[in-house]
Simulated assay, not measured.
Amino acid sequence: MAKEPKRPEIPDHLVALQRASDAAHREVTQEPYTPEGWQPWLTAADAVQQAVTEYAAAAEKVTRPEAEAEVKRLARLADEAS
């Protein structure tokens, strides 16, 4: 049986930021596009990207793409559980 790859430990605040960004995206896509209407999602998505970049830069042995993928995976799991 193959071992599951070791996943990076992701701080809860990164998952919370991703969940907020996902929620903002769901909300803005319910209405026709306007730059002002989409600004909350763009701001939330930018906050996630910046936080993941900072986390990956400070973490040892975790690349930014690995960190981002794990944040998104954990956020998805949390949303499915709620």
Rank of each mutant, 00 (worst) to 15 (best):
30 Q>L: 14
15 V>M: 00
44 A>R: 01
64 R>W: 12
12 D>Q: 11
43 T>V: 14
73 R>F: 12
33 Y>T: 05
66 E>P: 04
47 A>E: 09
19 R>T: 14
56 A>L: 05
19 R>P: 11
69 A>G: 10
56 A>W: 05
57 A>D: 10
77 L>Q: 10
76 R>Y: 15
26 R>C: 07
52 V>E: 01
5 P>H: 04
27 E>M: 12
28 V>Y: 03
56 A>K: 01
13 H>Y: 11
61 K>I: 00
38 W>E: 14
82 S>R: 15
71 V>I: 05
51 A>W: 02
34 T>N: 06
53 T>G: 13
14 L>F: 08
65 P>K: 04
29 T>K: 15
66 E>M: 07
64 R>F: 08
29 T>R: 15
77 L>S: 06
26 R>T: 10
64 R>Y: 05
6 K>Q: 08
16 A>G: 08
16 A>R: 13
33 Y>W: 07
54 E>R: 05
7 R>A: 09
14 L>Y: 10
3 K>F: 09
34 T>P: 05
10 I>E: 06
27 E>T: 14
78 A>V: 07
43 T>C: 10
46 D>C: 08
54 E>Y: 03
13 H>M: 06
2 A>V: 06
29 T>H: 13
4 E>C: 11
77 L>M: 09
70 E>M: 01
37 G>I: 06
80 E>A: 15
47 A>M: 10
48 V>N: 04
40 P>H: 03
65 P>R: 05
48 V>A: 01
6 K>W: 02
7 R>M: 08
